[in-house]
Design a protein around this nucleic acid. Structure first.
Lengths: 119, 119
DNA sequence: CAGCTATATCGATGAATGTCAATCTACGTG
DNA sequence: CACGTAGATTGACATTCATCGATATAGCTG
């Protein structure tokens, strides 16, 4: 699979536009695209429910078989959503035997909150 | 305009599934759909930049004419994005004369962070 | 009132996305 | 090794979405 977490460090691109008295350079196009990835992952009701179920589980992890039923979705669809959440850096995947266990990456949701605060 | 913020209070729908030891009922389908709306609004790079620019402005507000140029988008597209942000409860729109001024709704981004913490 | 300007809305179009059925891979078990 | 099962991948399809050009609305100005 392609890598998703390439962090572009770039200059904030000064703009001398007409009348905005901007004290800060705001987000560049690349920064914005990077940060939008996490919100794209969160922008689906079923993915929010997946995160919620995984988080609510006492063991902190859930296998796919436990996630298809409460969502009312097919297994391939759930696998697809889980993959998106993993690629967004929100979930961790661990294969043990035949089963795949998904767990919340500690601090990941806090990091998203940090993005919002730093907008 | 239609109202967007109808808060559905509903029972969490008990599920006696196989093996998930869930201590909490997690998100219902309706709750998830409701909360996904805000993240949908945030799931676009140009909308993130709009929020960033509006927030960075010293006056706390920006008119559309100031927003089209730094984004490199057409005026109808920017108006469309702004409408989505307003409907998501993130931006406030005030028409003064010919111009429309958009400003961040205080605490709106904190509320989104709260949604994440309460997942 | 006629014209100009800022913004919103409409219609169309191409791209991205969510979902499913079918298939493939990998692991465990008889 | 053959079979069954958990999960991932593929391909297809329908829906949603971002964008633009054209047009409409509203306010200012001569």
């Amino acid at each position: 699979m392609g890598d998703m977490n390439s962090l572009h460090t770039l200059e904030p691109e000064v703009d001398a536009s007409c009348c905005v008295p901007s004290g800060k350079p705001a987000l560049s196009a690349e920064e914005a695209q990077q940060k939008a990835l996490v919100f794209k992952a969160l922008a689906d009701p079923n993915r929010l429910r997946l995160l919620s179920i995984v988080k609510a589980g006492e063991s902190g992890e859930s296998c796919v078989c436990d996630l298809t039923e409460p969502l009312g979705l097919g297994q391939p669809t759930v696998s697809h959503h889980l993959k998106i959440l993993v690629e967004a850096g929100l979930l961790h995947r661990e294969k043990r035997g035949t089963w795949a266990y998904y767990s919340l990456i500690p601090g990941a949701l806090d990091d998203v909150a940090g993005i919002l605060a730093a907008l």
